[in-house]
C-alpha cells in the first residue's frame, strides 16, 4: 500500500464527493500552526499571522491536501511513519480551517491596522484552538458550528 495520504478506498470509505485524509496529517498541521502562532505572538507580527491566514485559506478553499502543511507532511513526515491506519473525512477539517481563517484574518488586521491588543487576542484564540486540536484531536471550530446554529434564528431545513 502507498504510504502517501492519498485516499485509496479505505475500509468504510466515504463517497467520492467526500474525500478522506490520513488522520496524522491534520494533527501534524495543527502542531505547525501552533508553533507559527506562538512565534507570531512573541514577535507581535501581523505578517506572521497573515501568512498563517493564507495557509488556512488554502486548506479551507482549495482542500486540506493542497494546504502547505499537508504537503510538508506528505514529503517530510509521512515517509518516516508506518502505513496509513486511520483516515478521516475532509469536510470537518475544511470547516475548522475556515474558522481558523476568521481568527487569523482578525489577528493580522488588528496588528497591521494599529490595534495590537485585538491582534494578540484573536491570535491567542486561534492558538488555543490549534493547540487543543494538536494535543487532543478536539476540533473547536467544528463544535462552534452547532452552538451557532442553535442561537441563530430558526432556518430549519
Amino acid at each position: 500500500m502507498s504510504r502517501s495520504s492519498v485516499p485509496v478506498g479505505a475500509p468504510g470509505a466515504a463517497p467520492v464527493d467526500d474525500p478522506v485524509v490520513d488522520v496524522r496529517g491534520p494533527r501534524f498541521a495543527a502542531w505547525v500552526t501552533s508553533a507559527v502562532l506562538v512565534l507570531a505572538l512573541l514577535l507581535g507580527s501581523g505578517w506572521v499571522v497573515g501568512a498563517q491566514a493564507v495557509v488556512f485559506a488554502v486548506g479551507a478553499f482549495a482542500g486540506i491536501r493542497r494546504a502547505p502543511y499537508a504537503l510538508l507532511f506528505r514529503v517530510l513526515v509521512a515517509p518516516r511513519l508506518g502505513p496509513v491506519r486511520e483516515r478521516e473525512p475532509e469536510a470537518p477539517l475544511r470547516f475548522a480551517q475556515l474558522v481558523g481563517l476568521l481568527f487569523a484574518v482578525t489577528g493580522a488586521a488588528g496588528y497591521l491596522l494599529g490595534a495590537p491588543v485585538l491582534g494578540a487576542v484573536a491570535t491567542g484564540f486561534a492558538l488555543v484552538a490549534a493547540l487543543l486540536n494538536a494535543a487532543t484531536g478536539f476540533c473547536l471550530g467544528c463544535e462552534l458550528h452547532l452552538l451557532l446554529r442553535r442561537v441563530l434564528p430558526a432556518r430549519t431545513a
Binding site: 505572538l41 514577535l43 507581535g44 494578540a120
Partner: peptide, 25 residues
C-alpha cells in the same frame, strides 16, 4: 519580544490545558 503577545501566550497555554483536562474527564 512583544509583551502583549507574551501575556496572551501566558493566558492561552493554561486555558488550553484546562480545556484538554475537562475534555479528558
Amino acid at each position: 519580544m512583544d509583551s502583549t503577545g507574551l501575556l496572551v501566550l501566558l493566558v492561552a497555554l493554561p486555558v488550553t490545558a484546562a480545556v484538554a483536562w475537562w475534555l479528558r474527564v
